[in-house]
């Protein structure tokens, strides 16, 4: 199998292989399943290859904590995937894209000049289009866990850091009668998220002091948030000065255009 370069269209737009093409992804997440819709524009050659059966839409599912990975293929741009609670725990990620299901040759149509000299042999299993890595847990869902606290009055909240389980999350305590509301109300979750972000400077300072070499803490979730803020060019808690605004950072952190939809009642 050749491991020569294959032109790649990436959702983040960094690849210039397909200069007129664009790839976007929409994801709708329900409990233990997701519908991933891929939208491809400006790449007629790829559309032709899809129609001819040389390419298929694919969504890879990864759960690092359980060493789990699977791939679902679809002829349709809308790919439905499911996962079992027996197989996964913690953060679950999806990687959508377009894969070659058999060998074929790409012509120069739609490709940048550097690819036009001769046809490109594409072996089976090659990614030609790739989307960003996405968590199927919303940031609020993965970072926050809500609990009742009988000592709190209605409308009160407290947010406490928790690193049990090996990654960072926050326990959000609310009055018992408010718990169900809080689990549904987006504004409450965002308020808790802001409170959690406000603790990042202190968490980072404490863990840097405690580490053997002063290096960053072992909180993958925090690292991903940091990386994303940098991508969005929003000041982080590690930047000089007082520019870090936890409210600004938290409310900028929707990583994909998704909705968490509750399961419909049977009635």
């Amino acid at each position: 199998m050749t491991t020569g370069a294959i032109p790649l269209l990436h959702e983040d737009g960094q690849s210039l292989d397909w200069p007129s093409a664009r790839y976007t992804v929409k994801v709708i997440v329900t409990d233990r399943s997701a519908e991933v819709e891929s939208v491809l524009e400006g790449a007629p050659q790829l559309e032709t290859l899809i129609a001819a059966g040389h390419l298929q839409w694919a969504v890879e599912l990864r759960c690092p904590k359980t060493l789990y990975s699977s791939v679902t293929y679809s002829d349709s741009a809308i790919c439905k995937i499911q996962w079992s609670p027996d197989q996964v725990d913690g953060d679950v990620y999806i990687l959508p894209g377009l894969i070659s299901t058999g060998p074929f040759s790409l012509s120069g149509e739609g490709l940048s000049q550097v690819w036009k000299e001769q046809p490109v042999d594409v072996p089976i299993g090659s990614w030609l289009v790739r989307g960003d890595v996405r968590s199927v847990n919303s940031l609020a869902a993965s970072l926050l866990k809500f609990y009742p606290d009988v000592s709190l009055e209605t409308g009160e909240m407290r947010v406490v850091r928790d690193t049990g389980g090996g990654d960072l999350h926050f326990n959000v305590y609310v009055a018992a009668e408010m718990l169900e509301t809080c689990l549904r109300e987006r504004n409450v979750q965002v308020a808790a998220l802001i409170a959690a972000f406000a603790q990042f400077p202190q968490i980072d300072k404490q863990d840097a002091e405690g580490a053997d070499d002063g290096a960053s803490p072992q909180y993958p979730r925090m690292q991903r948030i940091f990386d994303r803020l940098r991508e969005l060019e929003i000041p982080t808690w590690l930047d000089d000065g007082d520019e870090f605004d936890p409210a600004r950072a938290a409310t900028a952190m929707e990583r994909f255009d998704s909705q968490i939809v509750a399961d419909e009642d049977d009635d």
């Binding site: 199998m1 491991t3 294959i6 070659s100 090659s126 990614w127």
Partner: peptide, 19 residues
């Protein structure tokens, strides 16, 4: 490192072990 370019589940076994 090949993972960003290929999907291993479609690659023939003989190719995988060569890789």
């Amino acid at each position: 490192r090949h993972g960003s370019l290929i999907s291993f589940d479609l690659v023939p076994w003989t190719t995988l072990i060569e890789m």
